[in-house]
């Protein structure tokens, strides 16, 4: 048999192994309930609860920022972000936090904001031609 084919075969097997270990790294966006249940590092996508308290007091602790997030299932939990308050936080349309559920609170160390416009172009609306 062709030596090259052996190598290719080996790589394929390695590839499959990698693929399966990959699946450990992949998960769906979780809800707070799922995060509580699984007790592992997850990503939660949600909307900022603008009516609830947002707390950041750098003089006290510059690495503690708390706010309330509503997950897609409608559950609202307090999120503690171990970073400063991101710019334009209040204007965010969607927030994705990465972290773990600790008791009743979600402790996150990463956040991604989806803002109405920063790098993104605005959507184009077409005027209806009569």
């Amino acid at each position: 048999m062709n030596k090259l084919h052996i190598i290719a075969g080996l790589l394929l097997i390695i590839g499959l192994a990698v693929f399966f270990s990959l699946s450990k790294d992949v998960s769906t966006y979780s809800s707070f309930a799922e995060a509580s249940e699984h007790q592992q590092r997850v990503k939660v996508a949600g909307i900022l609860a603008k009516d609830k308290e947002m707390y950041y007091n750098p003089e006290e602790n510059p690495n503690y920022f708390s706010f309330y997030l509503r997950d897609p299932k409608g559950q609202e939990k307090k999120v503690i972000l171990l970073q400063g308050k991101p710019q334009d936080f209040d204007r965010s349309e969607q927030i994705v936090v990465t972290g773990e559920m600790k008791g009743e609170e979600f402790v996150a160390n990463e956040v991604l904001l989806k803002c109405p416009s920063k790098y993104k172009d605005e959507e184009i609306y077409m005027k209806k031609q009569i």
């Binding site: 790294d25 992949v26 769906t28 966006y29 590092r41 997850v42 990503k43 990465t98």
Partner: peptide, 8 residues
């Protein structure tokens, strides 16, 4: 389908 994502 809520979508897959890589956590880290």
């Amino acid at each position: 389908f809520s979508g897959q994502v890589i956590v880290d």
